[in-house]
Design a protein around this nucleic acid. Structure first.
Length: 579
RNA sequence: ACCACCGUAGCCUAGUUUGGAUAAGGCGUUUCCCUCCUAAGGAAAAGGUCGAGAGUUCAAAUCUCUCCGGUGGUGCCA
């Protein structure tokens, strides 16, 4: 009974399945008819709760009109106990659920904490996400990644998986060398005034500009990188550590604001030595080889282009660390599955990585999954941190906070500024995260300020608002227990649509986790908030016409509130006390 | 050149994995609704060659092929 919607589907499917043998369908065809796929939801609630379209293919096979088959099914079908009416509509067989019973099951289940929880899975999954570059700024692309990874982690846990949340700091590499080079030569002694990463980012942008103008200087940068990797120059190492600390500390502040949590932090600089060893082993096994001074692995036989493992000066690349990281993940943490939340521009990189792991004889290579998502781009085109055109998280947050603060101030002038600010922050983060979560992973998000500052309609604050309204109704109604609820009273359109929406949560969590698509939960949540908004405007709770009606509606509001709370949690969005 | 992803109302998006009934929302536009649990809300109207064409099918936004447009990637960036 944990999943009333699933149960209703199963009841109907079973009833139709029982009729099938009596329809004299040739056995060879019978197998091809996937009955479960023909049990669907009708386009309008007026047509029923579930529909069966199996008459079409059967009609085709038997060369009889589908209408005739549907009549036949209706004639022979045994009505499940959960259904009160079976109706013919064209060639469809439509089922109407006994709504009082369905409502009782849904509202009762939805009030439990276990509602939506999947069965405990045995597998251990590591989800790696965020992966910011210390010494570069945290921009809105990182926000999309972090939001996606955090939400996916929560959804997969809810679906029953054992999840380890992991982050990888790309704390070494060309971008770091460039920044340190530029600092040493042109900015020595300067300090950040307020925002450290913004200041560091400026130096990085300056470095890129200078190197563009004077490409000969790249030699100097390359030298710094070599020393960084070898850690053989105290002064450089010290400077690097200082910058890294500044940067990482600030990222951790951002994670607090974004409510993102990691069980494990990996650092590229720790992984590189082992990565180089692995590459050396690959060379000995003749899998990898030298080419034009660099070290490569030729994947042409596997249908993939050559993959570069080490640069000709011997310094490392992403590939170097990713080989070591895969080994570390599976061996040290004994995981069964590894999900990499990384931008879709790295699709080829991960194909090459997984294929190489396979060639190395790494048994769990097939258990690696690259969860690709598209970029956040500007109208003018791709953001570039090199050119300094990226929209930084801190700037976006500040701008949204201004708007949120003025709204909060207008609506809640009586509360103290400190609380106003906390509230505005919750709304800001909700709006930001939701806008990253309600679109499919493969969809490019075109960032524009007007949309970002929108708090109405299909947005995070709208969902928060509906949640707060539900909470307030419950508070004002007092803690009356809702025992002996007459669920048949919840018989109007808005109540029924709300109940049906609630009932789908377990299915939504399953699908979202299976396909790594948090936007399924996001869209579900919006629809839930939307149906609740319609419900509460037409169904007064506290001022209900009778105590029985009040009792029934209150139970539904409690169930809705619980469900909304759970959804907000799954999206990584906080619930405000008021709005 | 090759590979991948995207193309659904003026703008943005869901629906495509698993083909089914009148293509679903948001923003914007035009109307209404605050003596009644918070108007970040609700009700309604207008707005569509689902990029184009062909094919498969009883049935195509959904599957197949071709083409067009956009984005990203294709050995020393990350």
């Amino acid at each position: 009974m944990k999943d009333p919607w699933q149960k209703a589907r199963e009841d109907v499917t079973k009833a139709v399945a029982e009729v099938m043998p009596r329809l004299a369908i040739p056995k060879t065809h019978l197998k091809k008819l996937k009955l479960a796929n023909h049990i669907e939801e009708p386009p309008s609630y007026k047509m029923g709760d579930l529909a069966c379209s199996i008459s079409f293919p059967i009609g085709k096979i038997k060369k009889v009109s589908p209408r005739k088959i549907a009549e036949d099914i209706i004639d022979k079908v045994r009505r499940p106990r959960s259904v009160y009416l079976i109706k013919l509509a064209g060639a469809y067989v439509n089922f109407f659920l006994k709504f009082g019973e369905f409502a009782k099951a849904v509202v009762t289940e939805a009030q439990k904490d276990s509602f939506g929880k999947g069965e405990k899975q045995k597998d251990k999954v590591m989800i790696e996400y965020s992966q910011p570059n210390p010494l570069k700024a945290f921009h809105i692309g990182h926000v999309r990644n972090t939001t996606l990874g955090e939400s996916l982690s929560r959804i997969m846990k809810e679906a029953g998986h054992d999840v380890i949340q992991a982050n990888l700091f790309n704390d070494i590499g060309m971008h770091v060398a460039k920044t340190l080079w530029c600092y040493k030569n042109f900015h020595e002694g300067e300090k950040a005034h307020t925002n450290v990463s913004k200041w560091i980012n400026k130096i990085y942008v300056d470095a890129c500009r200078r190197l563009e103008e004077d490409p000969d200087k790249k030699e100097e940068v390359s030298e710094i990188l070599k020393h960084l990797e070898a850690q053989d120059e105290e002064e450089i190492t010290k400077l690097w550590k200082q910058f890294r600390t500044w940067s990482v500390d600030e990222f951790k502040e951002i994670y607090k604001e974004l409510d993102a949590h990691f069980d494990e932090d990996f650092y590229e600089s720790d992984l590189k030595p082992r990565g180089k060893e692995i590459i050396e082993e690959l060379r000995k096994k003749k899998l990898a080889k030298r080419s034009k001074g660099a070290t490569i692995i030729d994947l042409k036989k596997e249908g993939l282009p050559v993959w570069l493992l080490l640069k000709s000066d011997g310094t490392a690349l992403y590939s170097t660390q990713d080989l070591a990281l895969a080994e570390e993940k599976f061996k040290k943490f004994k995981i069964d599955k590894s999900v990499y939340v990384v931008g879709s521009e790295q699709r080829l990189h991960f194909q090459q990585l997984f294929k190489t792991l396979e060639l190395m004889g790494f048994k769990k290579a097939k258990k690696c999954h690259h969860l690709a998502y598209s970029l956040v781009t500007l109208k003018e085109g791709k953001m570039s941190s090199r050119e300094g055109t990226a929209i930084l998280y801190a700037d976006l947050r500040d701008e949204m906070m201004k708007k949120a603060m003025s709204e909060v101030h207008d609506r809640n002038p009586e509360i103290v500024p400190k609380v106003q600010k906390e509230l505005a922050m919750k709304i800001t983060i909700a709006a930001m995260k939701y806008s990253m979560l309600n679109v499919g992973n493969n969809k490019t998000i075109f960032f524009d300020w007007d949309t970002a500052l929108e708090f109405e309609g299909d947005t995070g604050p709208y969902i928060q608002y509906a949640t707060v309204r539900a909470k307030r109704i419950i508070e004002k109604a007092g803690k009356k227990s809702s025992a002996n609820v007459d669920f048949k009273l919840l018989n109007n359109k808005d109540s029924q649509r709300l109940i049906k929406q609630i009932s789908k949560l377990p299915m939504v969590i399953r699908e979202s986790a299976e396909t790594y698509q948090p936007h399924i939960v996001a869209n579900y949540t919006y629809a839930l908030a939307d149906k609740f908004s319609a419900f509460y405007t037409t169904n007064p709770v506290i001022e209900a016409e009778t105590p029985e009606l009040r009792n029934a509606r209150l139970a539904l509001v409690i169930a809705t509130y619980k469900t909304l709370q759970k959804c907000l949690y799954l999206l990584g969005i906080e619930e405000p006390n008021r709005m």
